[in-house]
Simulated scan of single mutants.
Amino acid sequence: MKPVKKAVNPAGISEKVIRLLEIYTLIAQNKFPSLALLMERFHVSKRTIFRYLELINIIDPIEYEKEKDGYKFTAGDRIKKPALNNEELQAILAAGESVSHLGSVFKEDFLKIVMRTFALRDIQNDKHPIVVKAPDAVFSIKIESILKILLACIQEKRAVEIIYNARHSKELTKRIIDPYVVVLYEGIWILVGYCHLRKTIRSFALDRIMEIKERNLYFNAQPDFDLKAYLSTPWGIVDGKEARIKVRFKKEISDYILRKDKWHSSEKRTVLPNGDVELSFTVAGVDEIKRWIYSWLPHAEVINPRWFRKQIKKELSASISSHS
C-alpha cells in the first residue's frame, strides 16, 4: 500500500496558522463559532481550541456570547470595509438614483450590497447632488415573479412557455420563447428572445405576459443575432413594420433639436436655410416615434411617408374634435 501523501499547505504555511486564520475569519464574519463546532471542524481537542482562542485574543480581544453559544470580537465587527472618497461616493449615489427607478426590490438589494461592502452609515437621504430623472419601472408582484423566472432561464439558457396578450390584436397566444435579455425601456420591462411560434426574434412586454412556465428545453442563441443592432433598428424596441420617417421642426425649437448629436442611430439631419430642421429615421413600427413627435407639437410636421402624415392628421383632427 502506498503511503498517503499529506496535503501541502500553501507556501509552507503551518497547519496551526491556517487554523488560526480560519477561526479568526469565522469570528470576524459574525458566525459565532462554538467550541464544539471548532473541535469537529479541525479534529482537535478542546484544550487545543482554547490555545487558538487565547492567541486570537492577544491580537484582537474576544469574548463568549452566551445567547449564540459562540465567540465574537469584543470591539464588534472586525472585517474592514473600504472607505470611499468623495468622487466614489457620488458615483455610488448616482448609481443608487438609477437603480431606484427599477423598483423597490432592486433598490433594497442595491442598498444592502453597498452597506455591506463599504463603510457607509446611511446613503438614503434626499440631498444627493445627482438626480436621475427617468420613468419608474412598471413593477408588481406578478412582474417580479416573471423577472425571477426569466433571469434564471436566461442564465441557464432554458426556454420558457408564455401565454401572451398582444396589444394590437388582443389575441391570447401560447408561445415557446428562448429568452435572450430583459430590457427596461421607458419604464416598461421587455423580453427579447427567439419566438418558436413566429420563427424569429420578437419583443414581449412583461406586463402583457398572462402566464409563464419554465421549460427544460435548453437553447443556443441564434448565431447571427446582434443585440446592439436589434435595439438600434426600431425607435425603441417594440416590433412593427419598418418605415422611413421624415419630420420637420420649426426654427423656434431648432436649438432643442440640435442640442443632441443624434436622437436615433439611423438619423440623418438637414438644417434648412430658413432655420427649420429636418430629421429622417428608419424605425420598426411608428407607435413610439409618433408619441415622440407629438411631444414637440405644434412645432413638428411629418413630411413622409404620406400614409403616416395622413394618420397623424386623422388623430390630431379627432383630438381637436374632442377638445371643441
Rank of each mutant, 00 (worst) to 15 (best):
A7K: 10
N9L: 15
E15V: 11
R19Q: 11
R19S: 08
T25N: 12
L37C: 03
L38T: 05
M39F: 04
R41L: 12
V44F: 02
S45K: 12
K46W: 00
R47K: 15
R47N: 12
R47T: 08
R47F: 00
I49N: 02
E54T: 06
L55G: 01
I62M: 10
E63Y: 12
Y64Q: 10
E65L: 10
E65Q: 13
K66T: 08
K66M: 11
E67G: 08
D69G: 08
F73R: 07
I79S: 05
K81M: 13
N86Q: 14
G96C: 10
E97K: 14
S98W: 03
G103F: 05
F106L: 07
F106M: 08
T117H: 07
A119K: 12
N125I: 00
I130L: 15
P135H: 06
P135S: 09
A137M: 10
V138I: 12
I141H: 08
I141E: 14
I146V: 15
I149D: 05
L150A: 04
L150Q: 06
L151Q: 13
E161I: 03
R167P: 00
H168P: 00
E171S: 12
T173F: 02
K174M: 07
D178C: 12
L184Y: 01
R198F: 07
T200A: 15
F204M: 04
L206I: 07
R208D: 02
R208L: 13
Q222T: 09
P223S: 13
P223T: 09
D224Y: 07
L227T: 00
K228N: 09
A229I: 02
Y230C: 01
P234N: 10
K241G: 03
K241A: 15
E242P: 04
A243T: 11
V247W: 03
E252I: 07
E252T: 08
W263C: 13
T270Y: 09
N274W: 05
S280G: 10
G285N: 03
I289L: 10
R291H: 07
E301F: 07
V302N: 02
V302T: 05
P305I: 06
Q311F: 08
I312S: 03
E315N: 09
A318K: 13
S322H: 11
H323S: 13
H323G: 01
